[in-house]
């Protein structure tokens, strides 16, 4: 019988140690064990992007990662975007200003995708933005406003 494991990683800027079953999905670890419910689960099979997180700066899906894989990594969740100085990131601010969230369930994943894009491509074309969020489903169909918000964020001096 396997027992729990102490897993050490960086979470939103802080070193943490978590006592977890090694095969626990990262999405469950976040939402149920750590109380970080900003990351959403929708399809649970990599098709919707709602559970997106950043691992060492790259966008990944927390429903398709197991807890043990976090060892030594740096994870940023949507909560990590607003910790500094208690203010929202520019991308988040543009989502609010341009009404890019309807029900809001896909929003954290969309913000992660947009942020991952703007980090490597600060001035994306509309089609590059479409590509970047092609792994995120918005069942309200707010895609146009989401694209507008990401484009608006890319036009600011402080993009992220």
């Amino acid at each position: 019988m396997t027992s729990n494991l102490l897993i050490s990683f960086k979470l939103n800027g802080n070193e943490v140690q978590v006592d977890s079953a090694p095969d626990r999905r990262v999405i469950d670890l976040l939402r149920e064990d750590l109380g970080l419910t900003g990351t959403k689960e929708s399809c649970g099979r990599g098709d919707c992007g709602a559970c997106s997180i950043l691992i060492d700066g790259d966008q990944r899906l927390s429903c398709l990662m197991l807890a043990v894989q976090l060892e030594g990594r740096e994870m940023i969740t949507i909560e990590g975007f607003s910790l500094q100085e208690d203010r929202l990131s520019n991308v988040q601010q543009k989502f609010i200003e341009l009404g890019a969230a309807q029900c809001g369930f896909c929003t954290p994943g969309m913000v992660i995708s947009a942020t991952a894009l703007l980090r490597v491509n600060p001035e994306p074309s509309r089609s590059e933005v479409r590509q970047a969020i092609s792994g995120n489903l918005c069942r309200c169909g707010a895609y146009q406003k989401i694209l507008d918000a990401i484009e608006a964020a890319s036009k600011e001096k402080t993009k992220l």
Binding site: G46, G49, D58, R60, S113, A116, G135
Partner: peptide, 9 residues
Amino acid sequence: LGSPPVRNM
């Protein structure tokens, strides 16, 4: 193939 996060993984 897949989507950006799927291609990252």
